[in-house]
Nucleic acid binder design. Structure first.
Lengths: 159, 159
DNA sequence: ATAAATTCAGAATAATATTCAAAATTATAT
DNA sequence: ATATAATTTTGAATATTATTCTGAATTTAT
């Protein structure tokens, strides 16, 4: 999947991205007003941003506590054959409670973000799912006590 | 800000959340079809989910590379007066490149997720912004080499 | 400078959101 | 269990918005 670079995005595109990032249910009419152009023109650009995979998804953010997901943890792991081991990362990614899987530089190899109901369910997850992941040498689990900021918005730079 | 618990959300609410999480630009008509109810009824529920802060935002996910944000890093920090030090966390949260700030249990105190253009801009950020954060004893920066999964979707449990 | 390609505006139509009153359902109190 | 109150849902009417398309304008490449 080829990804377009910033070069192809002009000021209007970036403005659309900022608006959409802030509120993806904004109407074309509203965007058109703010950008001072016709709704049809805005729509055209939005379609292209979707096609070019600049916009990858429209999503609703849901309060995790409201759906009983009260525990957030970061797990970092060492692997036996260091990197190159995409299998391990893919196996981690398949676990649905795993929100993020990063391959990292430094002491450990993988950094994983996990959300579960409580510590008991995290324990269950580790017993049932993590234990089956290949090539793991060691695991260090860090429990989040409080999340002060959790933005998904990107700081979209000027052209 | 009071947050409602799962108890008040019935099966239909959870189904709406799943649909909205998957595609926040889905129409009421489409949701109504899938849920086998009238569009107006769906709308009513959505409004309530917004009011109750179950849905906190509608957002477009943007490919970071497309807007030239190619570097992702996690920074963990030790603080001098351990926790209780909300000032430090708040100061971190104010930095716009900082996407997440978590207060964590364990060796370190804060875990921060940062996104910048490249390592040079991360360096600049650390020099200009992080250096001014109070109460920091030590910093450990972990560079992400590759992100295998980065979901924002929650696994919404059954009623 | 010219031609080609792209982008945009404006109008027409299709689709959707929104509102509201009445009916249905659910919860509550007796 | 029954009556009452409160909430939720529906269905129809209206307002708003999305979408399409063609010609004009702008941009880009030659």
């Amino acid at each position: 999947m080829i990804v377009e670079s910033n070069i192809n995005l002009d000021k209007i595109d970036l403005a659309i991205l900022r608006l959409m990032q802030e509120n993806s249910r904004i109407s074309n009419v509203q965007m058109a007003k703010e950008l001072e152009m016709a709704p049809s023109g805005v729509l055209e650009r939005v379609k292209k941003l979707e096609q070019k995979n600049v916009i990858t998804q429209y999503t609703a953010r849901i309060n995790p506590a409201a759906v009983d997901l009260k525990l957030l943890a970061f797990i970092s792991m060492k692997a036996s054959h260091s990197l190159g081991c995409t299998d391990t990362a893919n196996a981690l990614a398949k676990i649905e409670e795993v929100q993020e899987v990063h391959i990292i530089a430094g002491d450990d190899c993988y950094l994983v973000k996990v959300r579960t109901t409580d510590s008991a369910s995290l324990m269950a997850l580790m017993r049932n799912s993590f234990s089956k992941i290949p090539n793991i040498l060691s695991i260090r689990t860090t429990i989040v006590l409080e999340t002060v900021k959790e933005a998904q918005q990107l700081v979209i730079p000027e052209k």
